[in-house]
Amino acid sequence: MGKSYLRNILSAVSFLLMAASLYMVFVYVPTEATMGIVQRIFYLMVPVAWLSLLSFLIVFIGSILYLRKKQSRWDVLARSSAEIGIIFTTLTLITGSLWARPVWGVWWTWEPRLTATLVLWFIYLAYFLARSLAAEEHRGATFAAVVGILGFVDVPIIGLATTLWRGIHPGALIFQGGLAPSMLLTLMVSLAAFTALYSLLLLQRISMKNDEIEIKRLLGLTAERHNTGDR
């Protein structure tokens, strides 16, 4: 049961990192001067946005490998990561909105990163839709893989277009201004915590998908045995 062992370790690591990150976000890091206490949402928003992109990267890799090798395990990887990805994309939109409201006074703003995240959300949706609307399962997997590949390649272009659209210089996309060392550290720990969590969720979801496949196979066998005349 090597898989279980890995997952247990990941659970422990995630838990510890999360606890550390929470401590740092609420106790250790100083309050930011201009925005006040709300700025701490930043330590939630960046990791969550990072995960939505990381998930899609894994979807991309899984999709390419699936199209190349036709092995179902790559499709399992891609679709599991997509499921986690769309959840975190939704969370990015939610935290982005909860940040926008106190800081800018509006629930939504068409600023580049939020806009790009919204488009990414739709691409994730297209991934699932392409899969579910296909006539058969394996075609669904192929179609989803196509969306995964095109979507991922599109992400940097979307980021570029939305940034330029708002008149902001693309260089300023990731960090605005400097970050105090304590803030940077808190951010790093939060990022690590969420990445560990992502890995755990991914392994868990993959294992479940494999279970579902196994069940289908066993059901097929049971039906067979039943039909070949045993009582």
Partner: peptide, 12 residues
């Protein structure tokens, strides 16, 4: 389904 699949990709 065509618009839903493909419009997000051509947004840029």
């Amino acid at each position: 389904v065509l618009p839903i699949l493909f419009l997000p990709i051509v947004v840029p």
